[in-house]
């Protein structure tokens, strides 16, 4: 088993000012993508830039609720609430893997691609997956992310059940290469 190293870590915290999306997205893209997707693409490119990697061997994402804002819009439409129309884009972006998919499309990354969704431990599983594959020698580098957004309805519903969900926009780059690494990662 090989050693695995952390090369970069970039995070947008909930209170941070929104980045200037126009420097990365066209007007059309910015309109089509929800806030979570924009934050995911942004943090991923920052983490990759800091690690000096253009295209990683794998994109592995953890998300508890995916693009819940899109899911909610689509649910409203299915339930006939607020005269909301059934928009295919809302459905397409309601699947949890739409985040990892979008990142891969933008990077032109045909490598391993996976998404974990498991109750506050989604990111841990994504990290473990990347760690195992680098340790096994199946891949050399991986972009690992943790992306979650909140809607008022989700936050209120979960708070009433004793859960305090948080937004997340975190990307890290792992590699088998010790050179320039920040620290060794183990599981």
């Amino acid at each position: 088993m090989r050693k695995v190293y952390l090369h970069s870590r970039y995070e947008l915290l909930p209170g941070d000012p929104e980045p200037d999306w126009r420097s990365v997205f066209s007007v059309m893209e910015a309109r089509r993508m929800g806030r979570l997707l924009k934050r995911a693409v942004w943090t991923s490119s920052e983490a990759l830039r800091q690690a000096g990697i253009d295209v990683p061997d794998a994109v592995i994402i953890g998300t508890d609720f995916g693009c819940i804002d899109n899911s909610e819009h689509f649910l409203k439409a299915v339930k006939g609430m607020d005269d909301a129309p059934l928009k295919p884009t809302h459905f397409m972006q309601s699947t949890h893997n739409t985040i990892a998919s979008l990142i891969a499309i933008r990077l032109g990354c045909h490598g391993y691609n996976a998404t974990y969704s498991h109750r506050g431990r989604s990111y841990e599983s994504a990290l473990e997956d990347a760690w195992m594959q680098i340790a096994l020698g199946d891949i050399d580098t991986a972009l690992v992310g943790w992306f979650d957004e909140l809607t008022p309805l989700l936050a209120d519903s979960l708070a009433a059940q004793g859960i305090d969900p948080k937004e997340h926009a975190l990307a890290v780059v792992l590699s088998s290469n010790p050179e320039g690494a920040r620290e060794e990662i183990s599981f």
């Binding site: 949890h96 893997n97 969704s117 498991h118 989604s122 309805l153 519903s157 059940q161």
Partner: peptide
């Protein structure tokens, strides 16, 4: 409304719980 018992991970955990609980569980959603 949402329930903490309806997400992807919760559905895997419910399967695990039926068989007495697993030492580790996770959920792929691709």
């Amino acid at each position: 409304a949402y329930s903490r018992l309806h997400d992807c991970g919760a559905s895997t955990d419910a399967i695990a719980d039926h068989f007495g609980g697993a030492p580790f569980a996770t959920t792929l959603s691709t």
